[in-house]
Design a protein around this nucleic acid. Structure first.
Length: 490
RNA sequence: CGGGGUGUGGCGCAGUCUGGUUAGCGCGCAGCGUUCGGGACGCAGAGGCCGUGAGUUCGAAUCUCACCAUCCCGACCA
């Protein structure tokens, strides 16, 4: 029984909170809806960032940085974009405080800004107002830029990592000469996200297009990857938007084409956020704590010494340094936990909580026999190995764990994805089985809305790999060419 | 923004209904000793203007009012 972690069965959402807090990933701050990301949590985020950044650069993108503040007038140029974000914007109205006679600090009303500044909820507007200056000719295109930044969306209800008022993310903003090229970029980046989710986070995802009503504010098309969490709910893990010429028109960004014609620029934008941390937790962890895929674990191997006196400890230390030299050579990260203030059992529990993939325990008994105990976090299995060659065992095991937790997540998803042909069936699955439902839909926002109202399930996306098949909408009976993905979502 | 809950040592809570000497408990913390192959044990410690303000009362953690903070559920959203 783990100390202080609510079981998934008992209360899934409390379980999630417990893991985030007890594994030392993050905590609530003094600011409503904003969290402190703690060193261990941030280390995982840094690993995610490093890999994503590498993938962005491999696909030809460069990093840049745009301002946190957006003048209100920029923000309001693209109508549907404003509609989408207006209700959740933090606004800066003053630039100075003053001290009153009784010592209170108050806003200085004389320091009112001429034009209010919006704290960016996303950066399309500030970036497109900048691109206007950069783009004149087809020779200036494409522009392939990413930025790592924080954004603020004033959410009604927040949850650590899954939805916070301020969050960290990356946002790519690209400009192209043709529609085809922008569409290809949009799709390419979705593929990058999917690859990252599956190969690094060990989290299978379903790629598809959003319906019109779920589209990003200002986009012509929004693509998403959707992952299934252990409670059967969907989590949107990344989005990539084809923006058409909407922002180019709003910000008057034109270029002269090869044919000497003046044309508006085509755009894409795409992003993933610290929400991925929440996805990572909910995809793999168990009632004992976090389970991390080795590729994102800050520490691959923890080594716990078991000893009765200094003499034994010194023997162990010597042996361990031989092992760690070999781990270093293989680029496997490790921690030798020789704290004298905690006993081994305490450390075992602690690293299980933190999801360290592999644990080694070594005591006098092992020194005498030339052995070492290895425990893997994903299955909690323990086994005795010869110290000789342990680094190779670990190297292979890390790879195996990475694959195994992916397989486990995939099997779980497959076991919890259903087909429904009637609305009765559909409602039964959504209410009683928890999971994804593939069903026919007539393509209208009205039907989508009705289903959401009645069941709380939404269309997560229209999967790319959903095969063409003749069907009838389960509500209206109108013809439908393929099934779409329904689920309750985070 | 609607509904509900909670504010008491660092953390988690009891005490509040039925006001009364010194506000308890568990964990944690600091000390000594014994321990150390799955969250150790003993001994003896430190640490509280009971969320804020006003009121009722001889007397308030406890009753009243207001405010603030925070969490959960809904609507909205990555």
């Amino acid at each position: 029984m783990s100390k202080g972690i609510t079981s998934r069965e008992e209360n899934y959402s409390q379980w999630y909170n417990d893991i985030v807090i007890k594994a030392d990933l993050a905590e609530n701050s003094g600011v409503r809806g904003s969290m402190v990301i703690k060193p261990y949590g941030f280390a995982i985020w840094e690993k995610m960032q490093a890999q994503l950044d590498k993938m962005f650069k491999e696909t030809g993108h460069e990093n840049a940085y745009f301002p946190l503040f957006i003048p209100k007038s920029y923000f309001t140029k693209e109508a549907s974009h404003v509609d989408g974000f207006a209700k959740e914007c933090a606004v800066v109205t003053h630039y100075r405080l003053k001290t009153t006679e009784n010592g209170d600090i108050v806003v200085d009303e004389n320091a009112k800004l001429e034009e209010e500044l919006i704290v960016r909820p996303t950066s399309e507007t500030i970036i497109w107002s900048t691109y206007k200056k950069w783009i004149h000719s087809y020779r200036d295109l494409p522009i392939l830029i990413n930025q790592w930044a924080n954004v603020v969306r004033w959410e009604m209800r927040t949850r650590l990592f899954l939805r916070t008022s301020e969050f960290l993310w990356q946002e790519g903003h690209t400009a192209h000469a043709t529609s085809e090229e922008a569409i290809a970029e949009t799709r390419q980046m979705l593929d990058v996200y999917a690859e990252f989710a599956e190969k690094w986070m060990a989290m299978p995802v379903i790629k598809g297009s959003k319906t019109e009503s779920e589209r990003f504010a200002g986009a012509l098309d929004t693509l998403s990857i959707e992952a299934m969490m252990q409670d059967g709910k969907a989590l949107q893990a990344g989005t990539s938007h084809f923006l058409g010429q909407n922002f180019a028109k709003a910000f008057d960004v034109k270029f002269t084409s090869k044919e000497s014609k003046e044309e508006f620029v085509w755009a894409s934008s795409w992003g993933v956020s610290t929400r991925l941390m929440g996805a990572l937790v909910m995809a793999h962890s168990d009632d004992k704590g976090l389970v991390l895929p080795p590729k994102l674990a800050p520490i691959h191997v923890v080594i716990v010494p078991i000893y009765k006196n200094d003499e034994q400890l010194n023997l162990i230390k010597n042996k361990v340094s031989e092992i760690t030299d070999k781990l270093k050579a293989k680029n496997i990260s490790f921690k030798f936990d020789d704290r004298t203030t905690y006993r081994p059992g305490h450390k075992f529990a602690e690293y299980e909580l933190k999801g360290v993939p592999v644990r080694l325990a070594i005591g006098q008994r092992d020194i005498d026999n030339g052995t070492i105990e290895l425990a893997r976090r994903d299955t909690l299995e323990k086994k005795i190995y010869d110290i000789d060659g342990i680094e190779t065992v670990i190297e292979n095991l890390l790879r195996e764990i990475q694959d195994k937790i992916y397989d486990k997540a995939l099997k779980f998803r497959e076991a919890n994805i259903y087909k429904a042909d009637t609305y009765e069936e559909f409602k039964d699955i959504i209410e009683n089985k928890n999971g994804f439902v593939m069903a026919h839909w007539d393509g209208t926002p009205e039907t989508e809305e009705k289903i959401q109202q009645e069941t709380k399930a939404t269309i997560r996306n229209i999967p790319f790999d959903s095969p063409e098949e003749e069907g009838k909408c389960m509500i209206s009976g109108k013809p439908s060419k393929r099934r779409v993905l329904f689920a309750k979502a985070y």
